[in-house]
């Protein structure tokens, strides 16, 4: 469950954005829509604890993340969130499997190879397990990024423009996977995007 109250972020002395209060129940799926510069990424980063120094409060699963210290926030992120970005941001030096195992390692959780297998299976890329990131296609790489985001069974998945670099076919594929994988893991899914193609799949909208 995510709840925000009177959230306001000040970029500099001239520009600030006030966000409407959000009440998102667990398992919901939302699209965060808006023009570029409307603060989609800022809100997503605030919700994900990637950005601090805002006014107002954010509560995630009963924890007020605005009150956490930097280190506590790192740990909280590792246990409760999965992130997906426009670019896949996979660690190019590692194989697919190693990339996925980084998620439990960095979150301080048990590194379960069977879980890696399971998630890769769900996303239809199990045969890519031992391959290096450079050898993957764009669509495959984005699916690996999704696998990494859901591996720890996070309660919240935050995606920032996950499909805007993909063609229609891959966009369809990735968004379908994102929705179904979030459902399978009972995670709250929030996608910040200006990609209108996603509206067909997710109907809850937050307009900025």
């Amino acid at each position: 469950m995510i709840r925000t109250r009177s959230l306001l972020f000040r970029y500099n002395s001239e520009k600030e954005i006030a966000f409407t209060d959000l009440d998102i129940t667990s398992g919901d799926q939302f699209l965060l829509l808006g023009e570029s510069g409307s603060g989609k990424t800022t809100l997503l980063h605030l919700l994900g604890g990637l950005l601090k120094n805002q006014k107002g409060t954010i509560e995630v699963n009963g924890t007020s993340i605005t009150n956490l210290s930097e280190h506590e926030l790192d740990r909280f992120r590792g246990k409760h969130y999965g992130f997906i970005f426009q670019r896949n941001h996979l660690l190019a030096a590692l194989t697919v499997e190693q990339n996925l195992l980084m998620a439990p390692y960095l979150a301080g959780l048990n590194q379960d190879k069977a879980r890696v297998e399971e998630v890769l299976e769900q996303l239809g890329i199990a045969e890519q397990k031992k391959r290096r990131i450079q050898e993957l296609s764009l669509g495959q790489a984005q699916r690996v990024a999704i696998a990494r985001a859901v591996l720890n069974k996070p309660s919240v998945i935050l995606a920032d423009e996950p499909t805007s670099a993909l063609d229609d076919k891959n966009c369809d594929r990735v968004s379908e996977l994102l929705v179904s994988v979030a459902q399978q893991n009972q995670a709250t899914l929030i996608i910040a995007t200006h990609d209108q193609r996603l509206k067909n799949r997710i109907h809850n909208l937050i307009q900025l």
Partner: peptide
Amino acid sequence: KYDLAIMRSMGASRSK
């Protein structure tokens, strides 16, 4: 820098 940022988002602390 992206690797570092993504690792932070996955729960790595600054000191790690």
